[in-house]
Every structure is written in C-alpha cells, then in structure tokens.
Amino acid sequence: MIETFINITLFAMQVLTALFIVRSKRLFSVVMLSGVFSLLTALFFVALDAVDVAFTEAAVGAGISTVLMLGTIALTARTQKKTAPTGYLPYLVVAVTGAALVYGTLDMPSFGDPMAPAHQHVAPEYLARSVTDIDVPNVVTAILASYRGYDTLGETAVVFTAGIGVLMLLSGLRRRRDEDDVKIVKNKAAKAKDRA
C-alpha cells in the first residue's frame, strides 16, 4: 500500500518536472530541472530495490550530466530560440506514440511479477551459483565483473572511446579557432597597411 503511494508520488513529481522542463525558456533552469528529474528517477530505483542502478543514476544523471550541460550552455546560448507555432501535428504524433507505447505495455508481465521471464531465465542460476563460484555478497558485482566480464570490458572500451571522441572534437575545434583568429588579425593588419 505505502509502496504504491510512494511510486505514484514519485511518478507524479517526474511528470510535473517534465512539464516544467517543456514550459521553461531559460536553459539554465531546464538543465537544473533535468538534474531534479534524474534524482527522482534515482529515488524510484531505490524504491525498486535497485540500489546499484540508483547510485549510477544519481552520480551520472544528476551529477555529471548536469555539469556537462551547464558547460554546453556556457559554450552556446542561455535562452531557447523562439520557434514558430507548429499547429496540432506534433501533439497528434506525441499522442499516437504514447498510445502505442501504452498498448505495448499491455503484453508485459505485471509490475513485480516473480514469474516474469526476466526472473526465470538465468537470474535464479546466478543467484544460486555466485555464492560458491565467486563468494561475493553483492551479486550485481559478481555478474558485472566476473560472469559478464567481456561485456564490462566492452563497456569500458566504449567509455574510453567516447572520451577520446569528445576530446578530439572539442580540442580540435579550439586549435582551428585559434588559427582563424591569427588569420583574421593578419588580414586586418594587411588591410590597414593597404589603406596607409
């Protein structure tokens, strides 16, 4: 009973935050509200007993993403551009997509169902075997680092590649801009000489 109440409250607060994000024109408040949204999601994961995921969501979603989005705002613009009114077509698309998603969830197992396929496949085996195989109390760590070590190696490589990509994009642009600045200064100097 109390769990349902907590879940509904968290969902309602998420929807409210999302509506404020849509309404707001100042990008600073949009970024801050998306941080709030992530924090609410983390609370929701705690309510679902998925503390590892909640931890990640709070650290990455509410922490790092917010800082990086603020950095992006500092590089670009502070307020949203005014857009021309688009009529009712976007609302129609959103409504149809939402209805399709709700229709899709009708086939899913009900909330917290222990007989759901996700709880019947390999999960019981992991839970039963990890104590003798690996002897680590946190089964999430056992699966992540040992049973699924290949996947985690891939994930680490993805994080590494993403970091390299961002560094190349941003630092490359900076170098080009500096060269452009030098060119502009030289052009100005040449023009000034011509005039003289």
Binding site: V67, L68, A74, L75, T156, A162, G163, V166, L170, R174
Partner: peptide, 18 residues
C-alpha cells in the same frame, strides 16, 4: 580509473573553451 579519466577529461574539454 578509465571512468575517472574520461569524466575529468570531458569536463576539461568543455570548461577550457569559453
């Protein structure tokens, strides 16, 4: 170690521009 490096590296890349 990788995640620390990537996160700090991305922050440096963003913050050193403007």
């Amino acid at each position: 170690i990788t995640v620390t490096g990537v996160m700090v590296g991305i922050y440096y890349a963003f913050a050193s521009r403007p």
